[in-house]
Amino acid sequence: MKKRLLIVEDERNLCLLYREELTKAGYKVTAVADADTALEQIKKQDFDLIVTDIRMPAKNGIELITQIMALRKDIPIIINTAYQSYKHDFMTWAADAYVVKSASLDELKSKIKELIG
């Protein structure tokens, strides 16, 4: 069975790119634009992995991670952000991987593969 990914990314076209590329890589992808919608989805269905941006309007990615942890859902999380510096925020340590956004999606794809196959 295909592994299920949840992508949280506020930029519409970036969401589109991730959905297409990761679907092509063999995953079943749900992409949402904000943290609250992500939480609704997580409560509704099981995911094998979550990829989230940090800087988003309204609730940011770090708050999202905290709330996912509060739900006691044991889902691997990859932080995917434009910033290096959030690595110093200890709440991002709760995530399983930290991938800085890049013009190539190779690193993101290989991290996902590493975590869930």
């Binding site: 930029e11 076209n13 970036l14 790119l17 590329e21 434009a82 800085v100 956004k101 890049s102 013009a103 190539s104 999606l105």
Partner: peptide, 10 residues
Amino acid sequence: RNPLVMIGGF
């Protein structure tokens, strides 16, 4: 970075 990811990806 965001525009670059999209330019690169697409």
